[in-house]
């Protein structure tokens, strides 16, 4: 589904943020990307739907080359859901309007269709009563659930999560993770940048560990948590699991 091969990215002439990154996410697979901050995890995931350009290598998404100038990027992006660290709901639109906007403007669905889909998804994330509120009137956890529903409204073939729980108060993390776990159980293809190792051990198929722009470890979940091969991953794990 997602094929990342030999991706190199620089900011400016000298600062390399991604170094020869190669990995893949198969259909229905859940891959967790972790690593210390500044390791390039978010940058890598943003390269997948071309929110960030990269200079070398290639990424193929459902058979379509992302970094091909001929690719219709808006059309391709509409097929991949993305959830951001800071939710990024549109503050001037009501919750239900947030869910409908791209359905109508990008997919060309009728307002009725979009509303029906939006209401169904709001119900799924348990926020039906908030449909007519504005994002700023909801808690962080609720906003992130709306953001997930907004992405799902586009019927995506895969979902990208960029630290979806990092900006949340601790008591709100689980409500968002629960939605993500459900999604994983339904067979959604997911690439998740997160520090939530509990989530990784529960639903991930594979774990990718990145450090300084490199993919240091790309292993099955059991191998990764059992005995990470690299010293850097071991150190990272011991720090993150012991706190």
């Amino acid at each position: 589904m997602i094929e990342i091969s030999h991706v190199n990215k620089w900011y400016g002439p000298t600062f390399q943020v991604l170094k020869d990154c190669t990995t893949s996410v198969a259909k229905g697979e859940v891959v967790v990307v972790c690593g210390p901050s500044g390791s390039g995890k978010s940058t890598l995931i943003k390269c997948v739907n071309a929110l960030e350009p990269f200079q070398e290598g290639q990424i193929i998404l459902d058979g379509i080359k992302v970094n091909d100038p001929k690719t219709d990027l808006p059309k391709l992006r509409a097929r991949v859901g993305m959830v951001f660290q800071h939710f990024e709901l549109f503050p001037h639109l009501r919750i239900i309007e947030n869910l409908c906007l791209a359905q109508e403007k990008v997919l060309g669905r009728s307002h009725g269709e979009a509303m029906a889909k939006g209401e169904k998804l709001l119900e799924r994330v348990g926020l039906t009563v908030h449909a007519n509120k504005y994002p700023a009137e909801l808690s962080g956890g609720q906003q992130q659930r709306v953001a997930i529903a907004r992405a799902l409204a586009m019927d995506p073939i895969a979902m990208l999560f960029d630290e979806p729980t990092s900006a949340l108060d601790p008591e709100m993390i689980s409500e968002v993770l629960d939605v993500m776990v459900d999604l994983a159980h339904e067979g959604m293809t997911m690439m998740v940048v997160t520090h939530e190792m509990g989530f990784a051990s529960k639903v991930a198929n594979r774990v990718i560990f990145m450090d300084k722009g490199e993919i240091v470890e790309d292993a099955l979940k059991t191998d990764f948590f059992g005995s990470p091969r690299s010293e850097r991953a071991q150190k990272f794990l011991s720090k993150i699991l012991s706190h």
């Binding site: 943003k46 929110l51 992006r77 951001f84 800071h86 990024e88 990008v106 907004r150």
Partner: peptide
């Protein structure tokens, strides 16, 4: 926030939209 533009882009909206 930079993320607003990214969110719009990620949903498939064109720059104009």
């Amino acid at each position: 926030p930079r993320g607003q533009k990214q969110a719009a882009t990620a949903l498939g909206l064109t720059t104009g939209q």
